[in-house]
Amino acid sequence: MPLHSRHLLGLDGMPREDIQLILDTAVSFREVLDRPIKKVPPLQGKTVANMFFENSTRTRLSFELAERRLSADVLGFAASGSSVSKGETLKDTARNIEAMKVDMVVMRHAAAGATAYLSRIIEANVINAGDGSHEHPTQALLDMFTIREKLSRLQDLHVCIVGDIAHSRVARSNIFGLKTMGARVSVCGPATMIPRDVEKLGVEVYHHIDDVLPTVDAVNVLRIQLERDASRLFPSLREYHNFYGITRKRLEKAGRTITILHPGPINRDVEISADVADSEHSVILQQVLNGVAIRMAVLYLLSSKN
């Protein structure tokens, strides 16, 4: 049973069986990663271009590794800033790269909707590696995979996403994906970081972390964007840590075992305390490993949709 779409632009509207298929397929690739020889042939002869218009280390490396593990030929392309500041439009850049007979394009871009636009102007399969504040579907898929691995299901689990929901593509993709998979989803953060009408996506909104933790099975801690001009959204990192930081004390007070996820890179002792990040309930490094498996699954499934 193939995926319904030939692109992975986001999890919004993706059918449950497609998410299920990706997660299940990733299980086999996860096994591959434990073998002494970690390379398999499905994408032999295929060329994948990684177009990263925004800084990224782990997502880019993860995709690259996944592509190489599948035996694809890999083209790397990194340019910071928008296409306009470079003087070449996204369309021209994309068409130039496609002219080299590329089969799949993985793109990260600062503008929401950029991957949807790309999918309309080129023939190759498009995979969204993060478009502005919109979606980061492979991150949410690997988060769901990791939760499922740890807690053996998604249905009826309560997952809380903590942080700057308004500006987070990770939050959006997780909300869409988890809701589709039947999880209970809540978001928590200061009012300045909660986007308007978010409850219409079927999530619960909390402003006080201690109110939500006692019912939570997994918490996905978003990185506080130190580099973004967030000064209007909260007064200080100290205050953020004091009121929203995931600490051992808070978790103990919640009185239950809570799985800790973080998309990385973490700011130790800001959104998450160091001891929690390194604790046995933290699955942060599993997320990184699973990310490769998820991306292999996505690349593999889409490559048969040409």
Partner: peptide, 13 residues
Amino acid sequence: NEGFVSTQLGLPV
């Protein structure tokens, strides 16, 4: 416009 659509599409408002 700031609202449900911008929240869903991740567009600045």
